[in-house]
């Protein structure tokens, strides 16, 4: 019941948002596909950064262990906060890239 209930709620609000966007706010459907692509891009970037953070964290811990002989648990590199921070990194990088593109476009026009 739980999975179906959660999918039902989010499905209903998504359909509501679609109706609101198309009928009331006059958003274009083409724009929606473009944004879905951007969302996938952000998620893909988050995954890449998460794996990078994980790899750097684990390598640092292994190097620390072999250099100092002191034990640090490798599990600390897989804390949930690493995933959330990776998402923040991805969002920041995406926004930075977008603003740089706009900046370059306005400069070339000017």
């Amino acid at each position: 019941m739980d999975p179906v209930f959660i999918l039902m709620i989010t499905g209903l609000t998504s359909v509501g948002m679609l109706i609101l966007g198309v009928r009331r706010l006059r958003f274009s459907m083409a724009g929606l596909w473009l944004v879905l692509g951007k969302v996938c891009e952000t998620i893909g970037l988050t995954l890449m950064l998460f794996l990078l953070n994980l790899a750097v964290g684990m390598s640092t811990i292994l190097a620390w262990r072999s250099l100092t002989g002191r034990f640090v648990s490798i599990y600390i590199a897989s804390d949930t906060t690493v995933l959330i921070l990776s998402l923040l990194q991805a969002l920041t990088f995406q926004a930075w890239r977008e603003s740089s593109r706009q900046h370059h476009t306005s400069e070339s026009r000017g």
């Binding site: 999975p3 893909g44 970037l45």
Partner: peptide, 18 residues
């Protein structure tokens, strides 16, 4: 490539959760 990676991640998320 990054978009495809994101799509795969979403599919895995739905498979793992639901």
């Amino acid at each position: 490539f990054v978009q495809s990676l994101g799509l795969v991640t979403l599919v895995v998320f739905f498979l793992a959760s639901f």
